[in-house]
Design a protein around this nucleic acid. Sequence first.
DNA 1: ACTGAGTTAGTAAACACTAACTTGCTATAT
DNA 2: ATATAGCAAGTTAGTGTTTACTAACTCAGT
Lengths: 195, 195
Amino acid sequence: MNFTDRQVQIIEKAMTLIDEGGIQHLTTKNLASHMGFTEPALYRHFKNKTEILDSLLIHYQSVLRIGMEAALDPYKPGLDQIMDIMAFQFQTFSDNPSIIMVIFSEASFQNDSSLIATVTKIMAQKEQRINGIILQGQQDRSINKNLNAHSLTNIIMGAMRFTALRWKLSGFEFDLLEESKMLQQTITTMIKPTH
Amino acid sequence: MNFTDRQVQIIEKAMTLIDEGGIQHLTTKNLASHMGFTEPALYRHFKNKTEILDSLLIHYQSVLRIGMEAALDPYKPGLDQIMDIMAFQFQTFSDNPSIIMVIFSEASFQNDSSLIATVTKIMAQKEQRINGIILQGQQDRSINKNLNAHSLTNIIMGAMRFTALRWKLSGFEFDLLEESKMLQQTITTMIKPTH
DNA sequence: ACTGAGTTAGTAAACACTAACTTGCTATAT
DNA sequence: ATATAGCAAGTTAGTGTTTACTAACTCAGT
């Protein structure tokens, strides 16, 4: 998917609006006025509101994936790669908190089947990526072979999401990067081989 | 908080509506018609829509807490108690999937400060409960003392939530209780002492 | 006679979206 | 070089629908 510059501007503004007031705060009127033009101008760039949200998910996903691939070294041990992923993810959250609420919008999208399809696809891709690295880590003996890779994937993704949600709901009261260091430390202790 | 029978009926109907179509599907019109009466009748039982959502959170929380306390034996080792909590939680999700989307509505509630206060309170209570049990488990040596209790709490809560969300988004495609057994097994292996 | 719990009929505001018009840029034909 | 045709990206003014909520009335049970 290639977006025009103007489309990307609109998508990014939509992100910050969702961040500020939740998905319900993202109205065509609100989005247009924050863009500095009128409502109908939006429809010169997107077919409808669903297309805006769909593009937002796709854009956010590709930005994150590109950044993540750049941060990853496939020749490192699996455990180190998992930690690099976590570090990158939390750094991204910290730099651009808007993204957090986009992730959690997933739960609000269930009434729009085209959006839920996009969301499910994105989640499945991430899951496969992490799952693969865990298997690799169990091969290179940096991750405990006794642990179920699928469960571990869910534990890691769940912990990242939950920590990010807590940070957001607390009004960014604690230091996310510090908290994430503790989390990474704990996960490392838990999943490295025992001997 | 004590609710009348009628209020509880309305709250439970609201839960199933949120479950079916997300928070946006919960409109006063929809709720009233599913209750079999007209819109204004709702306002004989609740001040406004926010009070309905607030009551829903409080009601759901007290139901869950009462069930959980009943399922818990404070004389068991901490690790066993954690597993009992997880088993209870997943059984509840499995029996009553509506509750899942209520949990994830948290993210949609951010534009209503009275709701976010309720949500934050509920989450903090759960967190403290689990954190306490982990500390107890580290005392009675059923849980590895080297693990940070706070991080562990987030890992466990995050894993439960993420698994539930995946189950819901997949259209209940996999067996939640089977998946949760794997998850509990993996967590047990990870957090029991190494000695 | 009062009250709790419903009704009908309605409100203003917000919603996504459209029709029809304007304007400034750019590619091309002469 | 310049006239012009086309087009991308705005505008104003408006649509019908949905939203949460209210006023005023009814009526059965105590």
